[in-house]
Amino acid sequence: MKSSVITFPGSNCDRDMDVALNKFGFKNKMVWHDDIELPKSDLVVLPGGFSYGDYLRCGSMASKSKIMQSVINFAKSGGLVMGICNGFQILVETGLVPGVLLRNKYLEFICKNVFIRVDNKENPYFKNLDKDIFEFHIAHNEGNYFCTRDQLKEIEDNSQVAIYYCNNKGKIDEQFNPNGSVKNIAGILNKEKNVLGMMPHPERMIDQSLSGEDGSIFFKNLINNLK
């Protein structure tokens, strides 16, 4: 399985993602934002970080960079595109997934482990997982997912919510919502379910010495789903 991680100026989780993908069997290539052509890939990842210094709106500049036209075409032809954290912010700015990510409700940068519940397994990312509750790490200032009422209805009608913030028992409640996001939404899929944007970082949970292995479960399952 081949993967590509796009590096934007200011990306800082690109190499962590590279390590994670290679560890679980992907042959990963790093792709510079100024390139035009995307290498042949089964999965494209937009990594976390602070692309373009988060100027204007997080992800807004990166969404217009040269490589993104190829990434958008790849996604529109059914290719798998996953955006993590800043990558999720870039995805919403391209319009590949609906909604936007606002400043966290309490104006704090949040950096901690959270529990998330997988709501929808009818997609290549979470299909075949034998558990629903995962402990992942979040680190963001703008993760407060927002969409209009009409969009929310459409998202829910099409089962596009991928993951929710919850407690360790899987309970979804406002008190377990770290950033104020609508309905505790932590990750969203596009209608066709080949594009996933999520705030949590599975690549930070791929080794016992990195505080957990729930990311390992995610990546092992992902590559098996793609085979």
Binding site: L56, R57, S60, K64, E93, G99, V100, L102, F146, C147, T148, Q151
Partner: peptide
């Protein structure tokens, strides 16, 4: 196209 995000 860039300066505003018309969703919000």
């Amino acid at each position: 196209k860039l300066l505003a995000n018309l969703v919000i």
